[in-house]
């Protein structure tokens, strides 16, 4: 059996989703399914953000997150992403997986994360893709800081992300 091809990138640059998906099946005829996920920077509404003592001058200036800055732990980040994909490969059968996570300053609407898995059948690709995203959210050392009208604010970890990762352990 051929080894699973795992490719992980942590980068400031954007990526081309079409090129990345095509690369997973390039030059082979045994891939029957490629499942992919693209995460985008969302402009959260103010009511979803806990701000204390914020003076609101004009509604349109406080409506959204203006930008987001991604910090990470160089070295550990790549290792942890590779370990997550390797863990997925012990649970499902797939030929290859590609993970890209951007760092630095990103604007609402920009792509932030990409996960794609190529397998013979869709079940393995869908499940492995979702597993990798769920584990990435709780185990890969990235931290988001939002630029808001009130200044920078580190995003809190969500309990729902912990539960999403935990369901794979049942």
């Amino acid at each position: 059996m051929m080894a699973t091809h795992i490719s992980v990138s942590v980068q400031e640059a954007d990526f081309d989703v079409g090129i990345e998906i095509a690369a997973l099946s390039a030059g082979r005829d045994d891939v029957g399914a490629v499942a992919s996920f693209v995460g985008l920077v969302r402009a959260d509404k103010l009511e979803n953000i806990k701000l204390v003592n914020v003076k609101v001058d004009a509604q349109d200036t406080v409506d959204t997150v203006h930008a987001m800055t991604l910090e990470h732990y160089p070295g550990m980040t790549e290792k942890s992403l590779e370990a997550i994909v390797a863990e997925a490969a012990t649970r499902w059968s797939f030929f290859g997986a590609r993970v890209i996570h951007r760092v630095g300053r990103l604007l609402p609407g920009e792509r932030i994360v990409f996960v794609a898995v190529a397998s013979a059948h869709r079940g393995d690709a869908f499940a492995a893709c979702e597993f990798i995203m769920d584990y990435l959210k709780t185990r890969a050392p990235f931290w988001k800081k939002e630029d808001t009208p009130a200044g920078g604010r580190w995003v809190d970890a969500r309990d729902s992300d912990d539960s999403a990762a935990a369901r794979w352990e049942e």
Partner: peptide, 10 residues
């Protein structure tokens, strides 16, 4: 050794 808050990537 690295200390940090819970991660928030993705």
């Amino acid at each position: 050794v690295a200390f940090f808050p819970p991660v928030t990537g993705g």
